[in-house]
Every structure is written in C-alpha cells, then in structure tokens.
Amino acid sequence: MSLEDLYRKTTISPDGEEFEINPIEDYFCTDKPEEVKPVQNILEKFYNWARSESIWILGFGTGCGAIEMRPLMTPRFDAYRYGIQWRPTPRQANLLIISGYLSTKTLKRVIRVYEQMQNPKYVMALGSCTINGGMYFDSYNTIKRLDYYLPVDVYVAGCMPRPEALLAGVVKLKTLIKTGMAEGANDYANRFDWYKTNQKAVILNWDMPDYNW
C-alpha cells in the first residue's frame, strides 16, 4: 500500500473499456464511525452476557506478548473453556490484544485492524509497554501509552504477563462487559477526532484514508 494507490486513476478493463476508479471511495468506507448508544434493557443485558461469554480474539501478535498467547490457547491453560476463541480476521474478532510494545509501523496496522472490527469491540493491553512505555520508554520507534491511540478496556501488568494473568485480564473484561462498562468502540467514535490527531502525530507516513473500515 503506497500513497499512489489511493489516488484517483484510470484503468483499462480486460475488455478494453476505460474506466476511472477512486480507491478511497471504491475500497474504503468514507463515513466516520458512529456511536451506537446501547438501549439499556433486559435484552441488552442478555446480549452483554453473550458478548462476555464468547470472546473472539484477533490473532495478531503485535509484540512479544504474543508468545504467551499460544500457551493460553493450548492444553496447559486452555482458554477455550472460558469461551475465548481465536479469529484470524478482524471483521469477526471482538477483542484486540495489544501484546506489549507497539512500534509506530505496527500502530498504523493496528489502527486499521481496530477500525475494521465491529462495535462492540474491546482492547486489552498487555504489559508495561502499553501503560507507560515499559522497557522502551526511550525508544524512538514505539508508542508509550496506548490509550492515546486506542480506547483501552483492560491493562494487564507484567513483562510479559503470564497466561494466568492474561486470563485474569479476560475475566476482568468479562465483568466489564456484563456491567456494560466496556464501551471502547463508542468512546472511539465519540472522541474520534482526538484519537485521529494523536495517531497522526506519531505515524509519520499516514498514507491511509482517514475513514477506512
């Protein structure tokens, strides 16, 4: 993906027909995300229960914490017991685990991934790096606090957090979802401009459309 790919251009179809494409409009949605206020009723509570009991994690190992996700999903810890499953595509995932440090290059991808997830969506941040930079507080290439770029629901301390701590994080997230407190997606839509400003401040090469889910 480079900047030129986003420009309006003319292509020739296999039939020899000439037509103009505008990638921004054709490939990307151009609407700002909208806040979908949940109606607080018994159905929503029931839904919240279902959401909390079926958490699909996006399989994106953004940092070194990804190493502890394999034990999590394998016999020793078997997170499937808790209704946690793996999803390879952001469209179907509900929980984005930022496993540790995020370089700005990954942050850009993470933002795209996060925006492609559907409301409600949750972010769990692992390790010191997402809280305040961790080991890489002085690195020129990693962000220091994640909540400036994505709404974070749960932080898990550790470097790396053990799978047990990760599970505890999910359990905490479940209670948040059940009580209707995990509204990160709406927060993101609400303070969209603020998040975008922060994101653009650190991503040097912003060659992606602003609204792209």
Partner: peptide, 30 residues
Amino acid sequence: YGRCCWCALCVDVCTTGSLKLSNAYTWVDT
C-alpha cells in the same frame, strides 16, 4: 509498572536487602 520489566536488578543491588519481589503476578486494571 508502566515501566518495570521485572528484571529484579533492583533486588540484586539493594544495599539493605529490604527490596524483594514476591511471586504474585496478577494485576489487572482499567
């Protein structure tokens, strides 16, 4: 704990031996 990496060098250099790391590891916060 937004910086710590649990290397425990602080424990190793502690001049009085007062600092140590427990084996608790779960801390989840919003």
